[in-house]
Structure formats: C-alpha cells, structure tokens
Computed example of a mutant assay.
Amino acid sequence: MAYDSDLADRVRDLVPAGTTEKQMFGALAFMVNGNMACAVGADDLLVRTGKTAYETAIAAGAGPMTMGTRTMSGYVNVSADLLGGDALADWVGWAVAMAESLPPK
C-alpha cells in the first residue's frame, strides 16, 4: 500500500525543521526528535495523541488506530475528508506537540 504523496507534501509544509521521514508499514512517518508524530497513509493521517488526549481526538472525528485486531491507544486515524482547510494544520500541530513533549531518541 502506498501513501498519499499529495497529503505527505502538505504535512511537510507543517512540520518543524529537522523533522525526519521514515517509511513504515506502507505509510510515511514524520519523526520529531526521533519520536513519531504522525504518518500519512493511502487515505488517512495517523496522529499521535498520547493516552490523555485520545478521547478528545475521537470526539473530534478521528477513528481508533488499529493494527490487525489490536487498538493502539494514544494514536488515532483521521480520514482524508477531515483534513481540508486548516484542519490538517490542527491535527499535525497536535501530533508535533505530543512528539516534542517526549524525551528525544
């Protein structure tokens, strides 16, 4: 599965300088200080929320992040239809802030 290159370009414009990219599980992950902030999939954005903001992100329209049958707490999937206008900047900003709050790797 390939990632959405147009969405990846939009995310690149929003992440801080020094952010690295890494292909993972068919997606393109954006790493801030060595911690994954978000990842672009084929038709969605994986956002790292942390466990404390998970429910708030779900209430804002995101879906749970699942790998197989396991739900990954602290991460949500945001569908492409929720990423128009300034919404992408809000989701990426949230993910970057979460990654920056963690110790560098």
Score class of each variant (00 low, 15 high):
Met72Val: 13
Met36Pro: 10
Lys51Trp: 00
Thr56Arg: 11
Phe25Pro: 00
Asn35Arg: 15
Ala37Asn: 11
Thr49Leu: 05
Ala42Trp: 02
Ala57Asn: 06
Arg70Trp: 00
Asp9Ile: 01
Pro16Phe: 13
Pro64Asp: 06
Thr52Ala: 15
Lys51Val: 04
Phe25Asp: 06
Val78Phe: 07
Leu45Asn: 00
Asn77Ala: 08
Arg12Asp: 10
Arg48Val: 03
Glu21Ile: 10
Met72Ala: 10
Asp9Lys: 15
Thr69Arg: 07
Gly34Arg: 09
Ala17Val: 15
Glu55Tyr: 00
Thr69Trp: 00
Ser79Ile: 11
Cys38Leu: 12
Ala53Ser: 13
Asn33Arg: 14
Ala39Glu: 02
Val76Trp: 00
Ala80Arg: 13
Thr69Ile: 00
Thr20His: 07
Gly26Met: 08
Leu7Tyr: 14
Ala42Ile: 02
Met36Leu: 15
Leu28Arg: 01
Met67Tyr: 07
Asp43Cys: 06
Val47Tyr: 01
Phe25Ser: 05
Ala62Glu: 06
Ala59Cys: 12
Ala39Gln: 02
Phe30Lys: 04
Asn33Phe: 05
Gly74Ala: 09
Met65Val: 01
Thr52Val: 14
Val78Ala: 05
Thr71Arg: 10
Met36Ala: 10
Ala57Arg: 05
Thr20Ile: 07
Met31Pro: 03
Cys38His: 03
Ala59Gly: 09
Ala57Gly: 06
Cys38Asn: 06
Pro64Tyr: 00
Met65Gln: 11
Gly63Gln: 11
Gly41Val: 01
Phe30Ile: 05
Gly74Phe: 04
Ala42Tyr: 02
Ser73Arg: 13
Glu55Ser: 11
Thr71Pro: 02
